[in-house]
C-alpha cells in the first residue's frame, strides 16, 4: 500500500500527541515507522534523508560552449538551488564544481543523478553527484 505524504503527516501528528512530552525526534520517528509498517505501508522514509541537504556536483571534460548552460538548465528544471559555483579552465580542460541544494526538488538524488548522466553523455563530459557529507567527513574534523 502506497501512503501519501499527507497520510504520513497525519500519522506523525497522532504520534506526537500520543507521546506528549516524551516526543523526541527519535521516538516520533520510531513510532511512525512502526505504525506505517503495521499498516503494511511502503512509504520510503529514506527519501527524506537523501534529498535533504546539499550535494556536490563535480563535472569535467574537454571545454566547449554550452556546458554550463546545459548543466544549469537541467538543474533548474529539476528545481535544484545552486548555492555555490566554482569553475576553472586548465588548457583545454574544463572543471566545474557546484554546491546544490536539492531539498526543494521534486526528484530525489538518484533521479537527479540519472538526469545528469544523460546530460553528461550529450555534452561528452563527466558529472558526479555526491552527498555533501562525504566531503565533510573526509576533509573537516
Amino acid at each position: 500500500m502506497k501512503l501519501s505524504e499527507e497520510e504520513v503527516r497525519k500519522i506523525t501528528f497522532e504520534a506526537i500527541s500520543e507521546l506528549e512530552d516524551k516526543a523526541t525526534p527519535e521516538a516520533v520517528k520510531e513510532l511512525v515507522r512502526r505504525r506505517v509498517e503495521s499498516m503494511g505501508g511502503d512509504y520510503k522514509f529514506e527519501k527524506g534523508d537523501a534529498s535533504s541537504g546539499r550535494v556536490i556536483l563535480t563535472s569535467f571534460g574537454l571545454n566547449h560552449p554550452g556546458i554550463v548552460a546545459g548543466v544549469t538548465k537541467a538543474l533548474g528544471d529539476a528545481n535544484c538551488d545552486i548555492q555555490d559555483l566554482s569553475q576553472k579552465i586548465l588548457g583545454d580542460f574544463f572543471t566545474m564544481i557546484m554546491v546544490i541544494d536539492i531539498s526543494a526538488s521534486q526528484k530525489d538524488l538518484k533521479e537527479i543523478q540519472e538526469e545528469m548522466n544523460k546530460i553528461a553523455a550529450q555534452l561528452k563530459i563527466k558529472i558526479y553527484l555526491q552527498h555533501e557529507d562525504v566531503f565533510r567527513y573526509m576533509h573537516r574534523i
Partner: peptide, 17 residues
C-alpha cells in the same frame, strides 16, 4: 565555497581513479 577545489577533486580522484 565550503570546500576547497582541491579537496573535492581529491575525493573524486580517490573514488573514481
Amino acid at each position: 565555497m565550503p570546500y576547497e577545489f582541491e579537496e573535492i577533486l581529491e575525493t573524486i580522484r580517490m573514488t573514481e581513479i
